[in-house]
Nucleic acid binder design. Structure first.
Length: 280
DNA sequence: AGTATCCTGGAA
DNA sequence: TTCCAGGATACT
């Protein structure tokens, strides 16, 4: 589900297709998904789309913004004349929009943006652009992979924390962008047992882990994200990363490197996969 | 630091 | 019929 590579893929799609469109009306089919004054966006033109960690911000030309977190099953799907119709609905979603899980419909000039969310965990907030950074989620975000998170900063964070390394990687307030799938794959690639206490990792291991995180996230963006559950990009298309999971979801299957049976455990309440031979 | 919570679909 | 998936938060 959506981690940095998935959300960045959506951002790029929206940046390409949504910019320049004007909001003509908003259908609020499930009110709890949206906060703020709907009227603020009517007649406003999309200027650009920013991403912070796993959060998105659509900026309009009237000083208002739409802050979005799609959590696990949210989808932002654009339909409009700018793109060929047949590419707009994925086979897996397979439904004509809007459907039962379409909670918000943003009517634009000559286009539509749908917000679908099966599990209704996501949120969208209309607020003044200047106030976006005051939202707790954005305000508390830690340094982001590929941006502020340098090796030395990453090393400081790892050494300062005594919890297990995997749940640490998932704490968006410590470092932002990493989610469960890429955390599993990065730890496997670095040969580190996810249960190891963070502060006990050696400098070499920290360097290896930092490089592995960047490597798996970069790969994720390259292949358009991971569509294990309901993730789709801004055109409703699926990504490919689920086809190249190195360890995530491979419980009981042979390790791709050494053939040892992959084990599964729960760490910090999250499914965690481990090759007992490769990860020490 | 660990766990319940939001919610639904799909798998066991 | 029950359980499980997990992003972030609110709890204990």
């Amino acid at each position: 589900m959506p981690e940095l590579p998935e959300v960045e893929t959506i951002r790029m799609g929206l940046q390409k297709y949504l910019v320049g469109h004007t909001v003509t009306d908003i259908d609020v089919r499930l009110p709890k998904m949206l906060t703020g004054e709907v009227q603020s966006l009517i007649g406003a033109k999309v200027q650009g789309i920013r991403r912070f960690g796993k959060g998105l911000v659509i900026d309009f030309d009237n000083g208002y913004s739409l802050a979005i977190h799609i959590k696990m099953t949210g989808q932002l799907v654009y339909k409009g004349t700018k793109v060929p119709k047949e590419t707009q609905v994925s086979e897996k979603v397979g439904k004509i929009l809007p459907h039962n899980h379409t909670h918000l419909i943003f009517h634009l000039n000559n286009a539509t943006l749908y917000y679908n969310d099966i599990r209704q965990f996501g949120w969208l907030k209309i607020l003044k652009t200047a106030d976006v950074k005051e939202l707790p989620f954005f305000k508390d975000l830690g340094p982001e992979v590929f941006k502020e998170l340098t090796l030395s900063l990453f090393s400081d964070i790892v050494k300062r924390n005594k919890i297990a390394i995997k749940p640490l990687l998932l704490e968006q307030k410590k470092l932002s962008g990493v989610g469960n799938i890429y955390a599993n794959d990065a730890l496997f690639k670095a040969g580190i047992d996810p249960r190891r206490k963070a502060h006990a990792l050696t400098d070499t291991e920290i360097e290896k882990l930092f490089a592995s995180i960047e490597e798996v996230m970069k790969k994720g963006i390259e292949v358009g994200g991971s569509s294990e559950w309901s993730y789709v990009n801004a055109l409703g298309e699926e990504g490919e990363y689920q086809k190249i999971f190195q360890i995530y979801g491979r419980e009981g299957k042979p390790c791709l490197v050494c053939g040892t049976v992959i084990e599964k455990l729960v760490l910090g309440g999250r499914g965690t996969y481990l090759c007992p031979t490769c990860q020490k």
